[in-house]
Nucleic acid binder design. Structure first.
Lengths: 241, 241
DNA sequence: GGCGCCGCTTGATCCAGGTCAAGGCGATGC
DNA sequence: GCATCGCCTTGACCTGGATCAAGCGGCGCC
């Protein structure tokens, strides 16, 4: 009983509830005993925007769950051209199971809270708890679906469609602050430069497209960050979802 | 013993050997008994280029292994713009575990041999053979890595770099016919239109870039299909790998 | 043989989005 | 208050790749 108490006193259960909320994340698949075991090796960190969590060249020795904030996954060409290849929202899992190096950089796009644990202890648990492996498999498949969706966007959509698609993505993922009959407000977790790197565009083009959406009365923007979409259906039509 | 004989007389072991060769595919993870079980529901098909194996809107009720040829995975916008989001070579696995519909179309790019089996029987085996689930998990992670690599290509590379990257991909995956000290020959499994849909370009641009590579003495092309790369290193440099 | 079709190449022109440059504006520091 | 900095917007211009159009060569068919 002491052990159970221990779990509930720790912050793990909160994490797990968050994971359950979207049927992703790691912890929901573990038994209380495994949670306690894992919590021994767990470190929660709060990091500033711009902090590199996993670097391109690193060997990976830890996994992490995103508890709050947004993490961008990037790839960079030798000459510096950069592409964001994924965005991780809470309670997504960060890491590349079954492989030593990642070929991808993970960087905090906003202030981020992560719950990190060593690769070895999670890998051990995967072999013990098949449900856990299944969860990770599911997340990989979801990320694959998303990556392929963005391949279509990057390969075939116009700048206007890309920006609308991006706003649609954030409207779905970022915790909406206000929502009522087709209207929705949220804070952009990314700078214009990040948005450009995500959409394969330049800062200027992103800015112009946002201006256009504003002038067309589809959105309002305050302080360059806070966006209100007046009609999500119209936005979807622009995005060619 | 009759059973074992049965396995070796069927074509399954060949398939399995092919799978093993690249540590992908499904069958290597099964016990002989499971193989026999699976082989009961297995149908081998030889299909023409252009045959749709899985359609966008379909509910998925079967999986398949690619035995020979190349299958293209495509996504299409309502107005017809198309993007190839993945190429499956033997012995890749086709299908989307844990989900009813695919959001992706799978179409034979060349003449293709596939080994198909009903989703239900494989799903049953996944729960019995953890190693099998693990294989599928690995393939999903590999495909994710590839998809993200192509996101970088689609978002940030020039037409010249994209075409070089594509040739490099085929040189690695398509069975090389001749290879010696940096020189390599192969048949393109895709038409110019397919290449364009893969690279987010137009037919004309692909054609012009191939002409440029030819004039620069990096490649030779016969009958629009057969390509010889004279210096793989040089090609890689053009591709900005 | 001749004809049409298909896949590909090549040339001429156009334009969406990139590049370059000049501010605007809020935050931070002196 | 003023200077600096980071982030964003806007305008002017340029260009890589799209679009439009013509033609070529192999192949199947009448």
């Amino acid at each position: 009983m002491a052990i159970r108490q221990d779990i509930h006193n720790s912050e793990i259960p909160a994490l797990c509830r968050a994971c359950e909320a979207r049927h992703r994340g790691v912890c929901g698949a573990l038994t209380p005993e495994q949670l306690v075991e894992l919590s021994r090796h767990t470190t929660k960190r709060k990091v500033e925007p711009g902090t590199v969590l996993v670097s391109d060249s690193d060997t990976i020795d830890s996994y992490a769950n995103v508890l709050a904030g947004v993490v961008k996954l990037t790839k960079t060409l030798p000459d510096g051209r950069q592409q964001i290849v994924g965005l991780q929202f809470a309670p997504d899992f960060i890491g590349r199971p079954f492989k030593q190096e990642s070929s991808i950089t993970a960087e905090a796009a906003t202030a981020v809270r992560v719950c990190a644990f060593p690769k070895t202890s999670l890998d051990r648990m995967i072999s013990q708890a098949p449900e856990l492996g299944h969860r990770l498999h599911l997340q990989a498949l979801n990320e694959l679906d998303e990556a392929r969706y963005w391949m279509l966007t990057l390969g075939r959509k116009t700048a206007a469609e890309r920006v609308a698609s991006f706003l649609h993505l954030i409207a779905r993922h970022g915790d909406p602050e206000a929502e009522s009959e087709g209207e929705i407000s949220f804070d952009l977790p990314l700078t214009r430069a990040d948005i450009a790197d995500f959409l394969g565009l330049t800062i200027e083009t992103v800015s112009r497209q946002l201006t256009k959406l504003r002038k067309d009365g589809l959105i309002a923007v305050e302080n360059n960050r806070h966006v209100t979409v007046f009609d999500v259906d119209k936005l979807e039509r622009r995005a060619n979802i």
